[in-house]
Computed example of a mutant assay.
Amino acid sequence: MPSPKLVPLTLSDDERRTLEGWTRRRTTAQALALRARIVLACAEGGSNTEVARRLSLDRHTVTKWRARFVADRLDGLSDEPRPGRPRTISDEQVEQVVVTTLETKPANATHWSTRSLAAQTGMTQSAVSRIWRAFGLKPHQVDTFKISKDPLFVDKVRDVVGLYLDPPAKAVVLCVDEKSQIQALDRSAPVLPMLPGVPERQSFDYVRHGTTSLFAALEVATGQVISAVKRRHRHQEFLGFLRTIDKNVPAELDVHVVLDNLATHKTPAVKTWLLKHPRFHLHFTPTGSSWLNLVERFFAEITVKLLRRGVHRSVTALERDIRGWIQQWNTNPRPYVWTRTADQILDSLAAYCRRINDSGH
């Protein structure tokens, strides 16, 4: 059966302004913003299939909201009433909570709490909490960031990400770094084991028994880790670790090493060794961009699962546990898969920088 002829969809100037406002305003619910984009795209022309392809949506979704708008105009884009208790909070009150949370601060704090915002708006604390959950607002949380000032940032990002996404033939890609100053800590009182309804309990204070350093080379393709535990982390230890890598990688393969800009990685002794071993190629991450080195993800794994709550009465015991943990890891390694392209990273960073420049600070 041929598809029914599409009903023409034309917009008045007021409707177009309203729809465009819904797509731009950050307080608009995402579902409503998507419906507005669908209607605007339909108004530009084309079949439901073509509009769905342009917006990367299912055709039935486009068909539904086109028909709803043609029948009921802007009112048709709102969710239909559902059975249950009538709403006690209006759209204006929801908007007030969202706008106040996003665009203002209380006089005596850096961010709103449910109690302070409830007092400000005259609503209940539970109502504010429900609205925050619905819009994904968490004023008590904050993420930190650091923007690299490396003049070769773009080139280094493309270099490292290129290795992850398109590694060279007949070569192994290794992410290398040192986790230094790992402390052997013993608690001042015995650890009390977990019981039903009671978490494991450790004394707040501890006794230090020295430190060690972990050198690790994470193979990007397999997740296997070449490691060495050393008491110091000078260029001599780094050079010794390069020799360890050289022994563990088959001689017929080139070795591409991703690492940071630590001074011990660039000493004359290291450069001389590299000249004598031309199969080694170093790729430096931008300054202040350790997130580009996948071995940092491995370090986070061993920190959470071994080091953070570990109890060790000597450096020797700590080193034994580290070696045992890595040996166990290598019996069933898990590679970390890099998915973002260099262009996606750079576009995201550019958008972030524009937000910072436009913030008025």
Rank of each mutant, 00 (worst) to 15 (best):
F284P: 02
L239S: 10
V255S: 06
H256C: 01
L292K: 06
F298N: 04
D159P: 08
T211N: 13
W338Y: 10
H60V: 15
V207P: 04
S90E: 09
I182N: 05
V173Y: 03
L185H: 02
D347I: 04
K230M: 15
H111D: 02
E95K: 12
L77P: 03
R354E: 15
H281V: 00
A251S: 15
V154K: 09
H233T: 00
E44P: 12
K247L: 14
G122M: 08
R323M: 07
L6G: 01
P81K: 09
K156L: 06
F215T: 00
S12C: 00
R308P: 06
R309Q: 09
I226S: 00
T211E: 12
K149N: 13
T211Y: 10
S289L: 10
A41V: 05
G240Q: 15
S113D: 01
F204I: 12
C175Q: 02
R309V: 07
P278H: 04
D150C: 04
V160D: 01
F299C: 13
R297G: 04
L282F: 15
V220P: 04
P81C: 09
D159A: 13
L9H: 03
G136P: 03
T114P: 08
D75Q: 14
G45Y: 07
I322D: 01
A36M: 04
R334L: 11
E44A: 15
S3C: 10
Q202E: 12
W22D: 03
G162W: 01
F69N: 00
S227W: 10
L282D: 02
P151T: 01
R66H: 07
S227K: 04
L174V: 15
W273C: 01
A317I: 06
T63P: 00
A221G: 05
G223M: 10
T61Y: 04
A67L: 14
S56V: 14
Q328G: 14
D58Y: 12
R309D: 11
F238Q: 01
G240Y: 13
V62Q: 05
T303Q: 15
R53A: 15
T272N: 13
E178Y: 11
R133W: 09
Y206M: 11
C42G: 07
P193R: 06
L274M: 01
F241I: 06
R25A: 07
P81I: 10
